[in-house]
Amino acid sequence: MSPTPDAADRPAGAVGRSVVIDRPGVHRLVEREVPVPGPGEVLVRVAAAGICMSDREVLDGHRAPGYVRYPVTPGHEWAGTVEAVGAGVDPALVGRRTVAEGFRSCGTCERCRCGETSLCTGGYAETGFTEPGAFADHLTVPARLLHPLPDDADLRAAALLEPAAVSAAAVRAGRPRPTERVAVVGAGTLGLLAVQLLAASSPAELVVVDPRAARAGAALRFGATDALTPQDAEALHGRFDLVVETAGAPSTAASSCLLARRGGRVVLTGMFSAGATGIDPVHLSVSQLEIRSVFGASSAAWADAVRAFALGLLDPAPLVTHEFPLERFAEAVALVGSGDPKAGKVLLRP
């Protein structure tokens, strides 16, 4: 039997490709030596990496200051296979299919020790934004952030486990219970993944609100009981025990609160721009709403998403509509947020 590969076994000078955004509006595809995993790290060969609007914000220069560090190789949604391990890492990980958490949480601050790793106070660091990401043939990540997958896992679908973990964080925050009436506002990637996770909680109703007819149809296939336009949903104000907002549109935080019953729960996951419609404080206090927000995903939410994927309760594969090689990064990222009704999740396949 041949020895298990580790960092020392890698051939010197092996070359790989990566997309690098030097500064807003400027990117290039470069060839560099394949990185060597340091102590506590693994080297992953990327199988697929998803593109989301935050990647386009990095390219366009619209990412909030402090949440990106140029030059950077983007790519925070990915799946791949462990190819080598650094010192102190279990060599049995080599050959495992895997995903990994994006937040480089410190693991020692009060919030991390309470399990709230997405609220780490040790300073913001995230794969694809401040650390090299997965729009590349390879990347290195701390082994402690890995979530190994089943041996037969579909890595193309698993690339969507990062947004699925965010949706799982929203579901954890919302605490759905069987027979409740639930609404999901927005039928983009986060919304459709949330529908699948919420359907597993046996709701009495699972209504999706989105103006796009094609997206509404997908929601029904994923387990929603009904799909409505925002205008039609106005007739259901005050109906739902739980409302999960995923759209981040200017009006959806406020409209989600109107959909909730008195004493209901609202979870906001959308990334809102300045000037979005605020939540009426009078309605909030009189209705005694419980409102939570989600930014990223904790380790526990990642575990939930990976477990649901392994059990077949979560199938992200139908969301993928386009796949591009690294060389066509510009074309791929332009498709994201373009308004093309045929564009769902866009992948890069190194």
Rank of each mutant, 00 (worst) to 15 (best):
D9T: 07
A12F: 08
R17E: 07
V19C: 05
V20R: 04
D22Y: 04
R23I: 10
G25P: 00
H27E: 07
V34M: 06
V34R: 03
P35V: 01
P39K: 00
G40K: 00
L43V: 00
V44Q: 05
A47P: 15
A47F: 10
E57D: 14
L59F: 15
R63N: 15
G66V: 15
R69Y: 09
R69N: 14
Y70P: 00
Y70C: 01
P71V: 03
P74E: 11
W78D: 02
A84Q: 05
V85G: 00
G86S: 02
A87N: 02
V94C: 04
R96Q: 10
R96P: 10
G102Q: 00
R104N: 11
S105Y: 13
C106K: 11
C112Y: 12
E116A: 11
T117S: 12
T117G: 10
C120M: 09
G122F: 12
G123M: 15
Y124W: 09
A125I: 11
A125Y: 02
E126V: 15
T130A: 01
A134V: 05
A136E: 00
L139M: 07
T140R: 09
R144D: 01
L146I: 01
L146T: 02
L149S: 00
A153M: 00
D154N: 08
A159G: 04
L160Q: 05
E162D: 08
A168F: 12
R172Q: 14
R175G: 11
P176C: 02
R177D: 12
A183T: 04
V184L: 12
V185W: 08
G188W: 03
T189L: 11
G191I: 06
L192K: 08
L193E: 06
L197E: 07
S201V: 11
S202K: 14
V207N: 03
V209Q: 02
V209D: 04
A214K: 13
A216G: 14
G217A: 13
A218P: 11
L220R: 12
F222V: 08
T225G: 12
D226N: 14
A227N: 11
T229W: 01
P230V: 04
Q231I: 11
Q231G: 13
G238C: 06
D241V: 02
V243K: 07
A247K: 01
G248V: 08
A249D: 05
P250R: 10
L258A: 15
L259E: 05
R262L: 13
L268M: 14
S273T: 13
A274I: 15
G275R: 09
I279T: 10
P281Q: 14
V286G: 06
E290N: 10
I291F: 04
F295G: 07
S298G: 02
W302R: 13
W302V: 07
D304T: 15
V306A: 13
A310H: 06
D315E: 03
D315P: 03
L326E: 11
F329K: 06
E331R: 02
E331V: 06
V336G: 09
G337E: 02
G337K: 04
A343G: 11
L347E: 09
